[in-house]
Design a protein around this nucleic acid. Structure first.
Lengths: 139, 139
DNA sequence: GTCGTTGCAAACGGTTTGCACCGTC
DNA sequence: GACGGTGCAAACCGTTTGCAACGAC
């Protein structure tokens, strides 16, 4: 069952994890790569991808692959949902208790055994709401 | 606001729509391309993509881009949720009323104005449950 | 006849991978 | 020193796009 590979705590792995944990946004691999490069100018994008995959499989971070075509990464392991702005793609967090509990055992899933659910909201962030209002009043 | 382009009902567009409507699975563009080729051997994958995008923008079909890295397409426009098998990637439908209603206006979304929600379940389809059982009993 | 659509093939963009060198344990 | 990890670059793969010919209206 469990993998028996001993992973090493390299400078790259440590800084990638620290950087992701240090932000509240949900960066793409490329965005994180650019952040990490401030401390590790010679790091490669491949290393960022490899570490994000490894850290995900170890349960240290989360990979969000339902928020668009590019994967995003989340250093916050507390259970929570996400909301994405349909205009600027900004992704925000939603504490789990702001959403009514869904009883997974009660979901009739046509032969499926329900294991997990992914609940993603979309909407307009505060900033884009303002933008839309000012555009409307102009015209 | 509205686009004013007159779209033509080409043989390709009609067959792509009919084929998608005729299946209850949620094929990827490539899978649909292979189905459509039985009737249109010379159709191109690009045409399939272009029509799926156009049909989506016209509200004729739905594009599911949260079920994995590849987009899937759904000809069933009745509101419903999806459940994906974590093992074989099969995607099933879930009538909306099997899931407790979520009051979107009640969701406290940190400055966001909630417009929509995407609720995707994952689990094990009946077939993969059986497979797992037989594997467990063997060992 | 107009102009939206097609087939083809090349381009694109995010992600993965093969490889020789590097550095953690 | 063994072997997991890295930087680099090329490969990969789903999707998009430019273009000249085609065909629905």
């Amino acid at each position: 069952m469990g993998t028996c590979v001993k992973h090493r705590l390299t400078r790259q792995r440590r800084i990638i994890l620290e950087t992701l944990r240090g932000v509240t946004c949900h960066p793409t691999a490329d965005e994180l790569y650019n952040m990490v490069r401030e401390q590790l100018p010679r790091v490669s994008l491949g290393t960022v991808y490899r570490n994000l995959e490894l850290l995900t499989s170890e349960g240290e971070v989360r990979t969000l692959d339902s928020l668009g075509s590019r994967k995003r990464y989340d250093g916050n392991m507390h259970p929570h949902y996400h909301i994405k702005c349909v205009e600027c793609e900004r992704v925000g967090d939603l504490a789990k208790d702001v959403v009514p509990m869904i009883d997974m055992t009660a979901v009739q899933a046509g032969g499926f055994k329900v294991l997990n659910l992914q609940l993603d909201f979309s909407g307009l962030c505060a900033e884009c709401q303002k933008k839309r209002e000012s555009v409307t009043s102009e015209s």
